[in-house]
Design a protein around this nucleic acid. Sequence first.
DNA 1: ATACAGTTCGAACGAACGTTCGGTAGTTTC
DNA 2: GAAACTACCGAACGTTCGTTCGAACTGTAT
Lengths: 237, 237
Amino acid sequence: MALDSLETRPSPAPVDGRKPRNGAFASKSSTELSDSRFDRRLAGVLEHAARIFCEKGYEGASMRDLSRATGMSLAGLYHYFASKDELLYLIQKHTFRTIIDRLRQRLAGSSDPEQRIRIFLENHLEYSLDNKEAMKVLTHEDETLKNELGTEVRAIKREYYRICFDLLEDFEGAKGLQFSGRLAVMSLFGMINWTYTWHNPRVDPSAEGLARQMGDIFLHGVLKSGRGNPKVARAKP
Amino acid sequence: MALDSLETRPSPAPVDGRKPRNGAFASKSSTELSDSRFDRRLAGVLEHAARIFCEKGYEGASMRDLSRATGMSLAGLYHYFASKDELLYLIQKHTFRTIIDRLRQRLAGSSDPEQRIRIFLENHLEYSLDNKEAMKVLTHEDETLKNELGTEVRAIKREYYRICFDLLEDFEGAKGLQFSGRLAVMSLFGMINWTYTWHNPRVDPSAEGLARQMGDIFLHGVLKSGRGNPKVARAKP
DNA sequence: ATACAGTTCGAACGAACGTTCGGTAGTTTC
DNA sequence: GAAACTACCGAACGTTCGTTCGAACTGTAT
């Protein structure tokens, strides 16, 4: 799984007067080859970093671990990113963005509310099983980043949750149901985000099977429990 | 929420020839008062530790943080436990044991398969919301302990999962269903273990409401999706 | 050859980490 | 009132941490 279209510091065009430090620039400028070389190397580093963060946790992993894994010197690593924080940020941002992009593409192909929820499920689970490590880093290190990098990742996360929330609302409207959207979304996310803790590819179903069975449980569940309940508790004073 | 019946090092009776270091002894011997004093102090430390591990993660939290929070000196802390590892172990073990004990008590009062699943749900969610911090430490630091302390906690965890699995099987048998127990259990655990990431007592239902709604979704879900499916994929070759 | 940016590295920085040691009060036991 | 034990602490130990600095290699372009 290659990590493509990445962005970090040295962005070849010093257009601005300011230093291009820790800025994020999407660049398709002149030096296509050199630019791509940098990005490919960074992508490789990020892949190793994702594996190490996954295994030992962000705080438990050291830059020396990454140095050992990549075969690069400790100082050499810092040519590709500004700090350990940014390393986590790049992994989380890229993972989220990729999931959302793929989801948007797939959703464009269907307008049936139930089908669209099943597309969401399959997209999420397929990506999760194909990128277990990045996915665990995404969910497990959810609250790790404290600064503005953290707020940016959290904004993308809200965007993703919002999509799911809207899908549920469409379904609710189409079926004439009435249930607490927040609780339903969170229950659904619980089911799918928990998979990284137990899924074993040798004994458990593949993404397609998982998506179908979880979709069955959840959709039948909200269908039955939502019907005839004019207002299922929204809050409790 | 007091942490009671704890065990650590100094166990007043040096029965064995060996040093009573990092051993775990349940003791109800002569010095009841002194013993209880030690336990009460340790319980206070564990409560602070749970809060700090919850906020900063196990690796991100330092013994100096705990020293500051408890008002005790760094060295003084080690009078109550042998290592940072053991601190996490004591928290996780006590939390799991308490949940299981309470569950067993409550389950004794009902024999209806559906009701028993709802009891499981309510017990888990009630404890979770009353002990958010310990609960987050339990689930978030799941794989943190690597040594024999970790294996012991993991054994208790399996015991807990086993109870839930059996409840599901009883329900399955009673209703004449046929679904993948493993996937159902894990989906259910996903729903309830995820709550610590989103539940806000000011806008979300209390444990009772959560348990009812999640129970509705899940039970209706497996009822509907399990019926008439003689064998829902158990594995995929 | 010269210049120059992109890459890489050895060596070190100061800070923070978990843990231990020797010792001091205070209380209990004989 | 000596001995033993519990409860606690200041100060330090050795290690590891993230990060930086200056210098050295590339590979082109002049």
